[in-house]
Structures are given as structure tokens and as C-alpha cells.
């Protein structure tokens, strides 16, 4: 719809925010932790998109990454282990006008919260989800997580882990109604920011797995990929992200990939030698649950009271 002149004038008067307006406290994350890079990218997004702090919510579960809401000067909900998704869905359902982000770790999302994760994908509510995947439980000082590579030595797997790692991208792409799946790495900030931005603009559940370093417990986990830019495969397409000259110069391993091609996305997600970075899948036509269930009925005090009374009357003796 065309914007009216009034809308344009009001835009002129819109508040401009600085990065500091979204910063809250000094992160307690270890020096060198990849969470810092995600925090910076998200704060930049909030500033550039002029998100109103009082209309923005970060919901998290438990873990290093789930301290994220504490460092954003917005609304936040530091929830219980594995339950970031249900809380975020509740917020979005009740207040569809809010911008809702979810920050969850590989343990929080892929282990204890796996059931909620699967169904959140299927519901496809308009949430922007960051899976901070450092392949280890960091907050509790090094236990193997579902995404730890086979052979990872940790406090719970002193002889090395026995199982192949779970691939969050493949899992997400296998669930009905997946509408946005992307992967980023914390050590390429430009690409991380572009992916975060695309995820924010996607209408539906955008799932971004961010591979991040844990310098404290798995310091060399991503070393082979960091040292060899050719083992990073940048995805680009005219309907997706385009590569800047600077990125193209450093990362020469590039792949043109149509984000609507699900089969190819699944192949790319299974890559092991190279880390694909970019949007693997995006389908803008998948309905959002909160819109599907939107009745259009105005929630007045009377209607709420009536509904409430009707429910309570069921238990009248």
C-alpha cells in the first residue's frame, strides 16, 4: 500500500538510535567468545532497523548464549532450559506487534529443547532464531553437546564422544514448514551481519545457525576452517545474498544457490569438508501460525471476560 504523506513525515520524526541504546552491561562471556560477534551483529541490526527497544524482545533458554537478553537494552526473557521457543511463541501470539528474537545454544536447542525446536519450525511463527553453536556445553565447563564432533573429549566423554554430531541444518530442513534456514560463522562479521539482517526481514521463523568459537573449552575446534578460507563456501544468488567485493576477494570458494531449491539445500547442509555460509533455504509463501489463527475478533475486555467466564463455567458444580 502507498504510504501517505503523513507516514513519510512521521518517519522523519522517528527516533534515531545509536548502538549504545541497545547495549546493556558488560558481557560476562570469556574473552574471544563468539557470542560477542553475534551480540554486535544483532545490536547493529537493531540500530540500523531502528527497532524500538520497548517493542523488541529477546527470549533465551539456558547456557552461555542464553545470557544474551541481559546484554540487550530491550525486553527480554531468560527462560528455562530448552524452553526458549514456547515462551517466544507465547509472546508472539499475544503481542504480534513485537519483534521477537530467540537466542539458544546447541545444548539448549538440540538436546533438552529439541521437541520444542521441531514444533517451532512447523509452526513457522515470525521469530528470528539464532542457534549459538559452539559444539560444547560451556557454562557448565565442558560437556559434550549434541553437535560435538565424534571423538570430542569432555568431562562427560573422557574417552571421546561416541556419536556422530547432530546437524541442526539438516534437521531443520527436514521439518515441515521450514521457511528460512541459514548458516553463519562468527569470524566473518560482514557475512554474519548480512545473514542476521536477512533473517530479521524474513516473515516466518528464520533459523540461523551460527558456528562460534569457544576459546575456553574447544579452542581449536574451527581452526582448520579459520586458517583456510577455501574451506568456507559462500552461498549467493540473485534472490538471496550477494557477495561484496571484499568478501569475494578473501573467500574464493563461492556457490550460486537458489534458496528455493530444497533438495540442493539439503545437500549443502550435509557438507562436512567445507562450511557453507549463507542462506540455504528461504520460502516466503509458508503461512505463519499467528496469522493463520488470527480471527480478526477484537479482544475487548468484554470478550475476554466472556471467554473466561465460559471456561470457568465448565467447572461450576
Amino acid at each position: 500500500m502507498k504510504s501517505s504523506a503523513t507516514d513519510c513525515l512521521l518517519d522523519l520524526y522517528d527516533e534515531q538510535h545509536e548502538l549504545e541504546d541497545y547495549q546493556s552491561g558488560v558481557p560476562r562471556w570469556c574473552t574471544g567468545c563468539g557470542d560477542n560477534a553475534i551480540l554486535t551483529a544483532v545490536q547493529r541490526l537493531c540500530r540500523d532497523e531502528a527497532l524500538r527497544p520497548e517493542k523488541t524482545v529477546f527470549v533465551s533458554g539456558i547456557g552461555c548464549s542464553s545470557r544474551f537478553p541481559h546484554y540487550m537494552k530491550t525486553y527480554g526473557f531468560h527462560g528455562i532450559h530448552g524452553r526458549a521457543f514456547p515462551v517466544a511463541e507465547g509472546v508472539k501470539m499475544a503481542r504480534p506487534d513485537l519483534t521477537v528474537f530467540v537466542n539458544t545454544g546447541d545444548g539448549d536447542c538440540c538436546s533438552i529443547g529439541a521437541a520444542h525446536w521441531i514444533h517451532a519450525i512447523r509452526y513457522n511463527m515470525n521469530l528470528t532464531v539464532f542457534l549459538h553453536d559452539n559444539r560444547i556445553y560451556g557454562l557448565t565447563k565442558k560437556q559434550a553437546s549434541p553437535t560435538s564432533p565424534i571423538g570430542t573429549k569432555s568431562n562427560t566423554t573422557p574417552r571421546g564422544s561416541y556419536l556422530d554430531a547432530l546437524n541442526p541444518l539438516s534437521v531443520t530442513l527436514g521439518v515441515a514448514n521450514a521457511s528460512f534456514v541459514a548458516q553463519a560463522v562468527d569470524w566473518i562479521p560482514e557475512s554474519l551481519f548480512e545473514i542476521v539482517k536477512a533473517a530479521y526481514h524474513h516473515k516466518g521463523m528464520s533459523f540461523v545457525r551460527v558456528l562460534q568459537r569457544c576459546p575456553e573449552w574447544l579452542p581449536n575446534s574451527f581452526e582448520p576452517w579459520m586458517q583456510d578460507p577455501d574451506r568456507i563456501q559462500l552461498l549467493h544468488h540473485e534472490n538471496s545474498l550477494q557477495l561484496s567485493a571484499g568478501l569475494s576477494k578473501v573467500y574464493k570458494n563461492q556457490l550460486q544457490h537458489d534458496p528455493l531449491d530444497m533438495n540442493r539445500a539439503r545437500e549443502i547442509a550435509s557438507s562436512e569438508d567445507v562450511i557453507p555460509v549463507g542462506i540455504l533455504y528461504q520460502n516466503r509463501d509458508i503461512p505463519r501460525y499467528e496469522e493463520t489463527r488470527q480471527t480478526g475478533v477484537l479482544r475487548t475486555t468484554e470478550t475476554i471476560r466472556k471467554g473466561f467466564d465460559a471456561e470457568l463455567d465448565k467447572y461450576t458444580v
Partner: peptide, 12 residues
């Protein structure tokens, strides 16, 4: 600068 991942090492 564009490649900095904000890990806080240097500033600390």
C-alpha cells in the same frame, strides 16, 4: 576492522 569479530581480546 571489517573482519573484526568483537571478541574483546585486543581491547581488554
Amino acid at each position: 576492522t571489517a573482519r573484526c569479530s568483537t571478541c574483546n581480546e585486543c581491547v581488554q
